[in-house]
Simulated scan of single mutants.
Amino acid sequence: MTSIPRHSVAVAGVTVREDGRILVVQRRDNGHWEAPGGVLEQDETFEQGVVREIAEETGVTVAVDHLSGVYKNMTIGVVAIVYRCHFVSGAPTTTAESQRVEWLTADEVEDRMMPAYAVRILDALTAEPCSRAHDGTIVHPC
């Protein structure tokens, strides 16, 4: 009998303010800049998970607009479901999971983030959802 592959499912939110700046965090555990997100819990929908993760990591309340992309790290089997969101309330603050929280421009996102994470944000700024695979570094096109 063949074993069933196991994947970890994560969610992330690309929150865009009216001025076009994007909410990002610098993680405490590895220092990487990313869109806020994390592992989806068993008893929540994708959208509930995105809202929870953004609040936990930034102190900001958001509303989900639409699915912007699905990404799979082929090396470690993590599937990330990414949503475009908009700001509702709150002041960005650091948390147990984030050492810095900032509103960046798209150019700043490209400068600070690894390609596998920057592409999630840049894809969310376009009109069409995208699905991509990567190995942690090299990202395949939509």
Score class of each variant (00 low, 15 high):
R17V: 02
S68P: 09
P36I: 01
D107Y: 12
E102V: 14
E97C: 12
V109N: 10
P36M: 07
V82E: 02
T93Y: 03
P92K: 00
I54S: 04
I54T: 13
R28S: 13
E41L: 07
G13I: 03
R21I: 10
M114F: 13
E97W: 08
W33L: 01
V50M: 06
E97Y: 13
L67Q: 10
V16M: 04
D29Q: 09
S68L: 07
D19C: 04
R21A: 12
T93P: 02
N30Q: 01
V109W: 12
L40K: 11
P92L: 00
E34G: 01
V62F: 06
E41V: 04
E34W: 08
G59C: 09
I81E: 05
I22V: 15
E56L: 13
V109L: 11
A106L: 12
D107A: 15
E47P: 01
G37W: 00
Q48N: 05
T105H: 14
Q42Y: 07
Q99D: 08
T95C: 04
M74T: 15
D19L: 03
Q26Y: 06
V39G: 12
V9M: 10
G59Q: 09
V109Q: 12
H32T: 04
V70I: 14
E41M: 04
V51C: 03
E110D: 13
G31A: 04
V25E: 06
T45F: 00
R84V: 02
V78P: 01
E56T: 10
S98P: 09
V9K: 10
T75F: 14
R28L: 12
R100K: 14
A96N: 11
I22N: 12
Y83H: 12
Y83C: 05
G20S: 03
N30E: 05
V62R: 10
G90I: 11
G69M: 07
W33R: 01
D107N: 09
R52E: 04
V62H: 01
L40E: 07
D107I: 08
L40A: 06
V50H: 01
V14A: 15
M114R: 14
A12V: 03
D107S: 15
K72V: 15
V11W: 08
H32E: 08
A80Y: 02
R52V: 04
V50I: 02
I81A: 06
V24H: 11
H66L: 13
V51D: 00
R17K: 13
L40F: 00
V88G: 00
A10Q: 11
G38M: 00
M114K: 14
L67R: 08
V25T: 14
H86G: 00
E102S: 14
T15M: 10
E41A: 10
V88N: 00
L104F: 15
A10L: 13
G38Y: 00
V16A: 08
V82T: 08
